[in-house]
Design a protein around this nucleic acid. Structure first.
Lengths: 339, 339
DNA sequence: AGTATATGGGTAAAGGATTACTCATGAGAA
DNA sequence: TTCTCATGAGTAATCCTTTACCCATATACT
């Protein structure tokens, strides 16, 4: 067990120098001789000394820590984003503090206050929540994946998202390319906030139009939650009432998984009778008995841009990222066996 | 955007009282009149003041923050644990700081140093890593799920884990109960650290022995990683070379998923020809075309005990938890359609 | 009346690190 | 020799809160 708490003062005393010198050694700020450094380092080692980050942060009015507001870390996509950002920032000496809101705006507000109270130096928000003037924090901010509707690009911030319209478009286009002329869609109808699925829907319609396929509302099923049950129910609806499409675009992989299972259970051959394209590239998609063709987000680029933005902002560089405030990234079709 | 930084001093000045009084109001420490309180609160509101937690922590030599060392937040089981603990502790005024190590011991060490440097008040470790004396931190600690082999229950700590041996036992027993006499096992052979799967194996053997079924090494397949591919490969090995068992215990759900898919692809009827029981109760297990029977961890109890331990430790209560250092919790069979 | 106690609130000392200044010494230049 | 400047290192202020201690005033009790 470590000894009682050791401060920089103790180290200074034991190594016969002033606290200023010890501080310089810790921060490698020059202004000390090699012997002094060796002595100080040895004492620090010996007493297992770790500088108090609270004191340092208090003095510097900042802490190398970035808060990330995330709706649900359990969601695979968000989880992967968080882990990648964390590890990248950690390598550069920054800590990432995860604030899981569970989609609760009050919790988000409390977390934002905490981020301010802890003098963190950066903020990432995956949240549609619109904030009041006084809730904003004046630190570099990245709006990631979910962007508030009436976002104002004032202050130090950028937004990074993927192109959902294009995603819906290329998914549908792939189905058409495979010969489908009767393309349905299972659409997550996120009432409250997220426009993402609506954009995918718009892309779907654009692809249809471009191929001169008449749009048919009968082929559109809206569901309230994007999960397997609803995917299965939608498939059943097609089977029992609306008639089988030859292609089906599901705006989320979970819907696709549920639909696929349901089709198979009813002896519908996928992809022979119905081709399916999902969205999000969750790991489950490729683990299905028939691996699901899907759209994948530019995850790595999103992470990369986010981290680069912070590093350049903290270095007070004027990078090109600072200028281009709104960044929309292309998505990618992952070709597998359902389409 | 909030105004320039406001300190308690500013608030004191603007409301015509001393900083001590403002501090008392903030901390509701009595010693002020109702009018004073109202005035101070109003000024704090008006200036959108948030106390600096670094200064507070520095002064109090502690911060209401608990660090959690976790191998991979992306893993569904760990993710759920973390989210539940976070939300429970947050309700009691504590922050949870997630330290994702990606199974890298150097990263864990760096995180531990950070936890010490930030004066956090509690620690949760999901890690087999054995620490040297000087790496230990003298704060309440919960070893969760993964327990270092030669753990010493000195200082303020408890360990909370589930009973893997019992899990292996009831999984196998269920198969036997369903009439299987020829029960195989796909075993994650975690060389380095985790004894969990070995314990499940021991439980498996105990169930066999109890039912007077002769143990047969031919029915044991060890794999290096617990993923779908390996599950599939193991199933294939049974199909092509070793002969089909009538029951199969997979020590992880991912193995079970892979095996199930492979069996189905080869026209093996599950559960008619082969019954399967998995382990961990991941969400994928119930989403399969044939939902997989599995063993579920006492997740909620683990979370509950962990949080209760901290709350009582911080309140300096002598709870019964402090005494019973090693806590082993029973697991549960989730009956579905593969067994 | 005189003393004890409760109430409301102020003063100033931590708490640990950083950093602007200051200073002594020695080397090199004029 | 004298002046300049680089080097190594110390002093003390500062960051913002909490809190031990102190001090009036008012009330209550012999």
């Amino acid at each position: 067990m470590p000894d009682k708490k050791i401060s920089i003062r103790d180290i200074a005393e034991k190594s016969g120098v002033s606290v200023a010198t010890v501080s310089r050694v810790i921060n490698q700020n020059g202004r000390y001789s090699a012997e002094t450094e060796a002595r100080v380092r040895q004492i620090m080692e010996e007493y297992n000394y770790v500088p108090n980050l609270l004191a340092r942060g208090l003095r510097q009015q900042q802490v190398p820590e970035i808060g990330i507001i995330v709706p649900d870390i359990t969601n695979e996509f968000f989880g992967r984003l968080v882990v990648q950002i964390e590890s990248e920032l950690f390598e550069h000496g920054y800590t990432l503090t995860i604030c899981n809101t569970n989609e609760d705006r009050m919790i988000e507000r409390r977390y934002l206050e905490m981020i301010r109270a802890k003098q963190m130096c950066g903020l990432i928000r995956i949240s549609h929540e619109h904030l009041r003037e006084e809730e904003l924090i004046d630190i570099p901010t990245v709006y990631l994946d979910r962007i508030p509707e009436n976002i104002k690009y004032t202050g130090q911030c950028i937004s990074v998202e993927s192109d959902h319209e294009q995603g819906g478009y290329i998914a549908t286009k792939e189905l058409i390319k495979q010969g489908c002329r009767n393309v349905g869609i299972v659409l997550h109808d996120a009432e409250i906030s997220t426009k993402a699925h609506e954009m995918r829907y718009i892309g779907y319609k654009r692809a249809l139009e471009e191929a001169n396929i008449e749009f048919d509302v009968k082929k559109v099923i809206r569901v309230k939650r994007a999960d397997c049950q609803n995917g299965g129910r939608a498939a059943l609806e097609f089977i029992e009432r609306r008639g089988l499409p030859d292609g089906l675009f599901c705006t989320s992989d979970l819907l696709a998984v549920g639909a696929l299972d349901e089709f198979l259970k009813h002896g519908v051959n996928v992809p022979r009778q119905v081709r399916i394209v999902g969205y999000d590239n969750i790991s489950l998609a490729k683990m299905m008995m028939i691996p699901i063709t899907t759209i994948s987000h530019p995850e790595h680029t999103m992470v990369d841009i986010t981290c680069r933005y912070f590093l350049s902002a903290f270095a007070k560089e004027e990078s090109e990222l600072q200028k281009k405030k709104r960044i929309v990234l292309p998505v990618e079709l992952i070709k597998r066996e359902t389409a």
